[in-house]
Design a protein around this nucleic acid. Structure first.
Lengths: 405, 405
DNA sequence: CAGTAGGTCGGAAACTTTCCTACTTGAGGT
DNA sequence: ACCTCAAGTAGGAAAGTTTCCGACCTACTG
């Protein structure tokens, strides 16, 4: 319980150096020993010792030789892909998807199924079934997976186990988490879906080197994934980024600014009959339908307002337009920028389309699961884990037991 | 340019341990050697060695003895107050204040003067004169001060040297920074005044153990100091927290939500003649003046809206009401809470009065200056500085030359 | 007398330097 | 075309240095 001042015996130095070697190998892909020596600044003796240790601990493996230079071939080293497996799950409105990835990010298996609409228990069963299927297809078993991350359309508490405002889940998600935790023998945490999309954007998309950005997820509702200083900002109770209810000149506080429901309502107001789906509306707009275009423009205006509000609070470097409706960036983006220029000219707002058009939530979940699984394996292998915290997404792997330490 | 992987020789371990000892001494005040041993987990041999080094480096001094236990008296150690001096300056609308603090936070000297209204050059001269006066009264000279932090009513860029939107400064602050940097022989950075108030709140006020909070500074304008994860969030270009322009049901984007100007306008609308100052208005309201109370209530409503908007974006643990008008918390707070409960009931918003009623900006500036000066001195003394970054306020001490590395 | 503070010494752990061997390439000579 | 040798590289081992820790010792105070 005592505060940790990070002081210790020589063993600490060994941990630090082992971790440094591991990080270099992770970052520079297959890499030879002399280069590791250069990159870390350590002596080759120390690097050799660390490598021996990491190999016996099974987090690093040899990966062929490098014969580009003259002289004897240098042995190459890489992260052992099998040292940590992650399971990502995306519980969407229509489908549930799952994927198993290895320690280097390779997708070993992926599967999906239709989302049950009525019973939370059915959703839980679908998740565990998908997970089992993925594990089998990946040639492993669930017990070997180090971490599972499940993306849900809900606010997830800091502990990663409690959900609120799960309007998009059967029975409001009641009992869902408990059922999955009971039946899935994998350390598990939940995460808000838009947050995971933001992580995907950071790792695979347009925000690789952007420290502060906000992903605007326009789907059934409007949400934002807030990344500050390279790490996801969840808020005190996980409710950061719930920007769908931001005040707006045309709405009172507490009214949803945007989302499928809101778009449908606007369609009615615009005199469009038959309550078409947002997808249908965008198809019509792309075809030139004036009324549909008006709805799109209104949507863009609201997005611009939300972005401006966010910018005034945290001033991110970049906004990214993502989510289901966000995929229609070709139609929306120009109009959003137009409204920004008109109504919020002095604000330095840059907004770009998502760089992860497909499966953003699933990929983010898989990435996060892989990250936590790796962190755990690396910490075990290097003896202490990284004392200097660079964890991009906080929060360690949740246990299955509710240990409220 | 190469990425730094924090690996190194045994000397690194020495640095780490020296830093750990230093941190314990800093935190636990005068403390004996055996207790340092317990707190750090190091052996007494190592602690003794580290102490010798820190004392010869002049960052630690002996501070009497502890005779509470039986046996020989234990020597006590403390941070050498003189090892780092900081200069804090608050350039306010009416007054300019400055203070010199030592490494343990003791205020050695403080001075103030009326703020020039016309010329930025006069403001700069006033600042340097105040600084010189403070240094002299503190029994030192400007060259001995390790860091100066100047709080300004403006947006300050990440470099700590460029200011924008300095409406509250003579000539919009044009040439101010350059003049001060030319004449003040101290490493210097600027900081937004509300941000400094937030730091004061974190260090001396109500938010000592709160990781995420927002200080709402209600003064001539409305600004927010955003602290996330224990560190100030400045935004990409230093513009985070400019919440005075947040959209609001009654205002268009780009209109100032709140501030002295706005309050005066509301007073006119409420039928109050003579354009009283906000301070006067609050005096009347406290006396029971109905019209003044109406203005106060409208102000509270706007604060509530701004807080709700911020909460939807970042969901801080706590809001603090500060700034000039914020000092009238007794009148405002209840009404703000009322409006929050009515309009933003589902949001978990806690708002409390400031715990730093006096000189918040100045104290924050002094704290930050002291912090940077200390960090510099400690890094020099321990050989490497802290590799594990816990810096609460980012950004090292700016140089006087504009080195855009 | 017992418990505590502080110092010293030898041992253990970890990193670095230096030296050595083995291997591959490429240039130049036969 | 083949051989030889110099240069450059990879890997390993031994000696040396730095740092930390445990144990022992002395001195002091209730």
């Amino acid at each position: 319980m005592g505060a940790d001042y990070l002081a210790g015996p020589q063993g600490l130095l060994r941990s630090i150096n082992a971790r440094a070697v591991l990080d270099v190998i992770d970052r520079e892909g297959p890499i030879g020993r002399p280069e590791i020596t250069r990159a870390t600044g350590l002596s080759k003796t120390t690097v050799a010792q660390a490598l021996r240790e990491l190999i016996t601990r099974k987090v690093v493996t040899e990966a062929g030789t490098d014969t580009t230079r003259r002289g004897p071939a240098a042995t190459l080293y890489q992260i052992d892909p099998g040292c940590a497996l992650g399971l990502g799950v995306d519980i969407g409105h229509l489908r549930i998807r799952a994927a198993v990835v290895d320690a280097v990010g390779e997708v070993l298996a992926q599967a999906e199924t239709r989302a049950p609409r009525r019973q939370a228990a059915a959703t839980a069963a679908a998740v565990t079934a998908l997970a089992a299927e993925c594990a089998e297809r990946a040639g492993t078993e669930l017990g070997a997976i180090g971490q599972a991350v499940i993306g849900v359309p809900a606010v997830v508490g800091r502990d990663g186990h409690t959900i609120r405002r799960a309007y998009g889940l059967p029975q409001g998600g009641k009992g869902l988490v408990e059922a999955i935790e009971r039946d899935l023998p994998v350390p598990l945490i939940l995460e808000n879906d838009v947050n995971l999309a933001a992580i995907a954007e950071q790792r695979f998309g347009a925000c690789a080197d952007v420290g502060d950005f906000v992903l605007l997820g326009v789907g059934v509702g409007l949400g934002a994934g807030v990344v500050l200083g390279g790490r996801l900002h969840r808020g005190f109770a996980g409710g950061a980024g719930e920007v769908g209810f931001l005040p707006h000149p045309a709405t009172e506080l507490g009214t949803e600014v945007l989302g499928a429901r809101r778009i449908a309502e606007q369609a009615r107001e615009a005199g469009i009959g038959g309550t078409p789906s947002p997808r249908e509306l965008f198809v019509r707009a792309r075809a030139g339908d004036e009324k549909a275009l008006a709805v799109v423009d209104a949507t863009a205006r609201r997005i611009a307002h939300v972005a401006a509000s966010i910018a005034l609070v945290i001033e991110p470097e970049l906004f990214v337009l993502g989510g289901g409706v966000g995929a229609s960036a070709d139609l929306l983006l120009g109009r959003v920028r137009h409204h920004l220029a008109r109504d919020a000219a002095p604000l330095p707002i840059t907004i770009i389309p998502s760089g992860v058009p497909e499966d953003a939530v699933l990929r983010g979940a898989a990435w996060l699961a892989r990250h936590h699984a790796r962190e755990h394996a690396f910490a075990a292998a290097t003896g202490a884990g990284r004392p200097y915290d660079t964890d991009p997404a906080g929060q360690p792997r949740g246990s299955r037991k509710g240990d409220t330490t």
